[in-house]
Amino acid sequence: MPGKLDVQIGGLRLKNPLIAASGCFGYGVEYAEAVDLSSLGGIVSKGLFLEPREGHPPERIVETPSGMLNAIGLQGIGVRRFIAEKLPELRTLGATTIVNICGSTLDEYVELARILSDAEGVAALELNISCPNVKEGGITFGCSLTGTFDVVNAVRRVTTLPIIPKLTPNVTDVASFARASQEGGADAVSLVNTFLAMAIDVETRRPALSNIVGGLSGPAIRPIAVRMVYECRRAVSIPIIGMGGIACGRDAIEFLLAGASAVQIGTANFVDPFIWQKVLADIDSYMTRHGVARVADLVGALDTSAREKEWISS
């Protein structure tokens, strides 16, 4: 029986549209003391390679106007430790766990998908083909239409888990990458990852980040992300998971109206780890106020009919 807030992402049913974004929620267990993980629609793990990684040296983040730049460099424990140490706890906590996987090669994505398909408690795979901060983090796949198709298609052949490529906004036409993902057999796409950006300390003339450049997130990017979700909605029929600067219920609804079936929250969780219930309450009261029975009814419900008539006709 479908409820008011639950959403469907391909074969994956989520109890509500709010998902913790990869890289913004550790492995989930870090937040278990503060947040009931089972109350979230889902969580996406920090990006995992086959092997552990140390990531970039500090400084790894810097605040920018209404946003933050990061270049963490995908520090992580590797997939085997994740399965052994984190996944059992996430299962016990009732989390719907989407695992974000990163590869340097096509084979590494395939291997990760195989390993995780055999693990208990993985709800879906998010393919990280969009991290701007490491050369080998899949961005070479994510910036090429054939690369995107190939990695999605290769993973598709080895798993029945829902696969969700996470798209980069650092391309001219993100919708074509959504299309390539769909053609490759993706169940959904998630977008956007961070915008490649840079900040400089003018007093010291040094880059603010040790990696020199990093990925911009937070409210500053939200309008661009909303536009990209809207473009993808018009290009593909598979569900879209939208993200980029969501900090309150209204922001989340904006993504739903633009065409996202669910949303991820990242940076705002750093500011307020208790944000989830607040955003859900906002969405719930919006739905009551607007007489919306199911959150799915908001998806793509953008109304473009009421524009003022163009008075210069061509």
Binding site: G23, G26, Y31, R60, I72
Partner: peptide, 12 residues
């Protein structure tokens, strides 16, 4: 250290 979240979420 420059810290983003204080909860172990961001690895900064």
């Amino acid at each position: 250290r420059v810290m983003g979240c204080g909860m172990g979420g961001c690895y900064s």
